Amino acid sequence: MHVVDHLKGNPNEEKRNVLVESARLARGNIQDLAELKVSEFDAIIFPGGFGVAKNLCSWAVEGKNCTVNGLVKSTLEAFHSAKKPIGLCCISPVLAAKVFPGCEVTVGHNKNIDGRFPDAETASAIEELGCKHICKDVSEAHVDSTNRIVTTCAFMCKAPLHEIFDGVGVMVAEVLKLV
């Protein structure tokens, strides 16, 4: 959608390619999502961040009325149909809320407790989509056993980096238990 200068906190006019940026962050070895073969993987994990809210879906501008990128949606549906676990952190649980009505996810808390959850209204938007939001702290993950979806709030909580890291680690460990 647009590139944010995180030093200043403002969008800028720079344009970036999602695949090029993915390769930069991963140090190279990536492939287009269109080439993914579910049969070659045991699970899938989506990180969160602005990339999810602006490029993988339109949550950043349309909230609960967003659309999910077609390839992202079909990938999630394929893993779900194959009964393979799906891990989602930060804002990416909204992808599950849009694609799997009735699922259970967490993006932290539904109230801005001590200023730690400034995006707490996301929880109510998830519930308005017909899903169940489970309140969890940053160091925890929620497992929706029925749908094989594991979520954690990560940067949806203003917390020290080590606490966010721990929560993501719990999510990954819970995904691996489902493999």
Rank of each mutant, 00 (worst) to 15 (best):
D5C: 06
D5M: 04
D5I: 02
D5K: 08
H6Q: 09
L7N: 10
L7F: 04
P11F: 12
P11E: 12
P11Y: 15
E13D: 14
E13A: 11
E14A: 12
K15C: 15
R16C: 03
R16V: 08
R16Y: 00
R16Q: 02
R16F: 03
N17T: 02
N17W: 11
V18D: 15
V18L: 15
V18C: 15
V18T: 14
L19G: 07
L19P: 04
L19R: 10
V20Y: 08
V20T: 12
V20A: 00
E21M: 02
E21K: 01
E21A: 10
E21T: 08
S22F: 10
S22P: 02
S22C: 04
S22G: 00
A23G: 08
A23E: 10
A23F: 00
A23M: 01
R24D: 10
R24M: 08
R24W: 01
R24P: 07
R24I: 13
L25Q: 12
R27S: 15
R27I: 14
G28E: 02
G28D: 01
N29F: 13
N29R: 14
I30H: 00
I30Q: 04
Q31I: 13
Q31T: 10
D32K: 05
D32V: 06
L33E: 02
L33M: 08
L33Q: 03
A34K: 09
